[in-house]
Design a protein around this nucleic acid. Sequence first.
DNA 1: CATAAGGGTTCCAGCAACGGGAAGCTCAAG
DNA 2: CTTGAGCTTCCCGTTGCTGGAACCCTTATG
Lengths: 129, 129
Amino acid sequence: MNIGEVADRSGVPAKTIRYYEEIGLVRPARSANGYRAFAETELHKLAFLGRARTLGFSIEECRRLLALYEDDNRESAQVKALAEEHLAEVDARIAGLQAMRETLARLVRSCHGDDRPDCPILDDLAQGG
Amino acid sequence: MNIGEVADRSGVPAKTIRYYEEIGLVRPARSANGYRAFAETELHKLAFLGRARTLGFSIEECRRLLALYEDDNRESAQVKALAEEHLAEVDARIAGLQAMRETLARLVRSCHGDDRPDCPILDDLAQGG
DNA sequence: CATAAGGGTTCCAGCAACGGGAAGCTCAAG
DNA sequence: CTTGAGCTTCCCGTTGCTGGAACCCTTATG
């Protein structure tokens, strides 16, 4: 399989696949003409990576997930721990964004939004909340 | 005022202040010895920027906010529109993260987390949800 | 007076995770 | 034979800084 087909079937862009090879996430063989030659297992790994990325796992977390995926002697507890850790990070980011969101919403509500210059939003930014 | 004092009083790191000068957000004068010489107004602007950044406004949004802040003929509607736009972005990001969060939480719940290799999390990642 | 500490200055590199685009090779079709 | 699509490598740009090197300025101290 050439990179184009793998990109189509895995949903991971060719550019990204090359990048993943560069950082050692996948190691496709090479054909005589220099083209990358992907086996089915590489395709699966890329689909796996694509999915993990959409769930917000970092590249390094993906690397560990992939290692576990390929390790027949893994313990599911390891996978679960990794996922829980990531879940906690996501929760923290959501909490941070929601705090921002509340402040922003309050500011937006406080502003008339007319043709006059007076603006509680700017006042707040200048005052520091 | 030298950069260190401005950093302390505004809460914006000296490195960041230099960066903001580089991209044209602030334009401090220079003393004879080559040091940046900040006026009170620059200090206020930096505090303003720091606050806007903690609310998640991008640098370009901060630039526009600062321009409005300094424009006596502004209309508060312009500020409000900018803030509303940003609020919508934040909401979108929260929604995206929450979707991720739900999937992750479901996966974590589904995994025993014991010493055996069977793992619904890896299965899900491999299958594509 | 030499020097050491603690400012300040510039510039360069790097982070995450790719995407865009150039220059050039290969392959299949007409 | 030529055209066009697909592949290759390489390098730059993104966002918003942060760390570090190498060097200058100022002040206090032995």
